[in-house]
């Protein structure tokens, strides 16, 4: 079969993702938990993604690595920050995208995109787990529920219990206190999601927000968070119709695709 495959690998703090493109089409992807050796995780996810498109053992024509583990990716032809990759990935899904909210395992980013799909500005959260997957994991452990149940529970709330802190440590003890006071778990969870959403809107003060807003990263799978963000921004928030966790890897693959097409021309 005569096809050129390019790959993007996004080594995040909690999960490692890979996307395979061929002739502009996303033909394969894979997600695995990030192990203690980011290099191994990157290689493993790339092999799995290649296997998913029937090319086990083969090497893509060009690979771009991103995410915090990009500095340990000798298998990649190039590395690029997750900020640029998320922008490229989001723009390739919807060219109307001007703002990307990426909520990953250990950080949260707001990325502004110009009308050519390039990053014009960005802001990242600062040494803090608030608004990240890790924060929601801690909250899930307090409620003793699976992470994926947090969103549906929050959407069943009858009211929003305000949470005053988005600091992971303080929020955890605040939630414990609220439970002890007899507040309903669903209502507390709605409050948790709204607190995070308002923190994200606060981050946008320095970079601004423009339509369309695309929500990416693992937290974008959480429908409670999607709803809370739309409420906070008073605007619709787009979530891709496939796994939002692979947007960074998709962007990396799009960059790889561009490099190959530049070489060919």
């Amino acid at each position: 079969m005569n096809r050129t495959l390019v790959a993007g690998v996004d080594i995040g703090s909690l999960t490692t993702k890979s996307v395979i493109l061929s002739n502009g089409a996303l033909i394969g992807s894979s997600i695995i938990p990030t192990g203690i050796y980011p290099e191994k995780s990157g290689l493993e996810v790339l092999e799995k993604a290649m296997k998913s498109v029937g090319c086990q053992g083969e090497k893509p024509a060009y690979t771009v690595a991103t995410g915090y583990g990009r500095i340990s990716a000798p298998y990649a032809d190039e590395t690029m920050t997750e900020i640029t990759c998320h922008a490229k990935g989001a723009y390739s899904i919807n060219q109307a995208t001007r703002t990307v909210i990426d909520m990953g395992g250990q950080d949260c980013k707001i990325i502004r995109i110009d009308n050519a799909g390039n990053v014009s500005d960005f802001i990242m959260n600062d040494k803090c787990a608030a608004g990240t997957g890790r924060f929601l994991e801690v909250i899930a452990s307090v409620f003793k529920v699976n992470l994926e149940n947090l969103g549906p529970m929050a959407l069943q709330a009858e009211e929003i219990v305000p949470i005053s802190s988005t600091c992971t440590v303080f929020a955890e003890s605040e939630v414990v206190s609220l439970l002890a006071r007899g507040e309903k778990p669903d209502n507390i969870l709605r409050g948790v999601h709204h607190a995070i959403a308002h923190r994200v809107t606060g981050m946008t003060v320095r970079v601004g927000v423009d339509d369309a807003i695309l929500f990416s990263g693992g937290v974008a799978k959480n429908e409670g968070m999607r709803s809370a963000l739309a409420d906070a921004f008073k605007k619709p928030v787009i979530v891709p119709n496939f796994d939002p966790q692979i947007i960074g890897a998709l962007g990396a693959a799009r960059i790889a695709e561009k490099r190959v097409s530049c070489d060919a021309s």
Binding site: Y68, I83, N118, V119, F122, K127
Partner: peptide
């Protein structure tokens, strides 16, 4: 925005690298 501890070095590296990517992109275009 930082202090003297090294705990945020990698996060700062990402920000600086992304900023440089923006500048390079602007140069190219």
């Amino acid at each position: 925005h930082t202090e003297y501890s090294d705990s945020d070095v990698e996060a700062i590296r990402t920000r600086v690298e992304a900023f440089f990517e923006i500048l390079k992109m602007q140069n190219e275009s």
